[in-house]
Design a protein around this nucleic acid. Structure first.
Length: 313
DNA sequence: TACCAGGTAACGT
DNA sequence: ACGTTACATGGT
């Protein structure tokens, strides 16, 4: 196969390694492989007949280099959709300079914004994957959420092998719309989560719910109202999807337990912050709530790895 | 055993 | 429109 590749430019601030650090936060991740300075992922462009295995690297922090390891786009439209997917995944279109200035200026996020310089809000461009990930993650710790995602993916997703490794794609709605509820519960999803995932799958399969349609509403609050109509999707899940899939910079899952823990740690509180405290804290980052949340989430992970490093010494 | 985890629905007032 | 409560399930 000819060496098919393309580049996607990105403006500063951008540090590919920082993004990879975020992406390796869980050894249980099953939808991509981070190998040193590159990521490998199986992707299917919307409407494409076959999936493509892509390798993404970034030698100079100025442009992502994307190489097709398997499969090739069958048309310009297909190539363009793959490019959009990757721009979306790494939030390449965003001008991060205003965020960097804003965050660095304050006492709470200043140190974080400097140590995480160039970290982009890693997205989940596929709406079905984003919703299922959020639903799986409701009220459970992250490790267990990853296990649920892995079981769903291994049971219902497509796989491709290369050089002795297996790469998987999150299941399509069609695969889960008809899934047996008992079978989903056997994966340790609760009844509520199983039902919510089946409902989302059915809606998407019937074309009654799509990322394009949500974005076409032109208003993230309207998109949220659509999402919340589905039983099993509440405000947290809706904001999570606004943040990581719809790319709403103002998404703000204010009830999130991890966010509470992160704010508690950053402010040195002996208790979790109240909603009022969160509101007034985030008022300082108006317009960038999603990035503030993302950086705070990641600060928790850095705290944990720092603690582990100390134990291992 | 109790409590928590990147919540939600149902039901009170 | 709000505040409370029941619920579900693995991890620590």
């Amino acid at each position: 196969m000819p060496d098919l590749s393309f580049e996607l430019p990105v403006s500063q601030p951008f540090r590919f390694q920082r993004c990879l650090e975020y992406m390796t936060r869980s050894p249980l991740e099953c939808l991509y492989e981070v190998d040193g300075d590159k990521v490998i992922r199986l992707i299917r462009a919307e409407g494409a007949a076959e999936s493509a295995l892509l390798e993404i690297s970034c030698p100079d922090d100025r442009a992502l280099r994307v190489r097709f390891l398997q499969g090739a786009p069958q048309s310009d439209a297909e190539l363009s959709r793959i490019q959009s997917y990757i721009r979306d995944w790494f939030d390449l279109e965003r001008d991060l300079a205003p965020w960097q200035r804003l965050a660095e200026a304050g006492p709470v996020l200043g140190p974080l914004a400097r140590s995480m310089y160039g970290l982009r809000l890693i997205g989940i461009p596929d709406l079905f994957e984003a919703l299922c990930w959020a639903i799986a993650g409701q009220q459970v710790n992250l490790a267990f959420a990853y296990k649920l995602k892995r079981r769903l993916t291994e049971a219902y997703g497509e796989a491709a092998d290369r050089e002795g490794r297996t790469y998987r794609r999150f299941p399509d709605p069609a695969a889960l719309a008809g899934a047996d509820p008992g079978e989903l519960q056997a994966l340790q999803l609760t009844k509520t989560k199983a039902a919510a995932i089946r409902e989302v799958a059915a809606l998407m399969q019937r074309g009654e719910l799509s990322r394009a349609a949500l974005l076409a509403l032109g208003d993230f609050d309207a998109a949220e109202r659509e999402l919340v109509r589905v039983r099993g999707i509440g405000p947290w899940t809706a904001h999570y999807v606004r943040m990581r899939c719809l790319r709403d910079p103002r998404a703000f899952p204010i009830g999130d337990a991890g966010l509470h823990n992160a704010v508690k740690a950053q402010l040195g509180l002996d208790r979790k912050p109240t909603p009022q405290e969160l509101q007034s804290l985030f008022a300082g980052w108006a317009g960038w709530e999603a990035y503030a949340t993302f950086y705070l989430w990641h600060s928790l992970y850095e705290l944990k790895t720092a603690a582990l490093g100390k134990d291992n010494r």
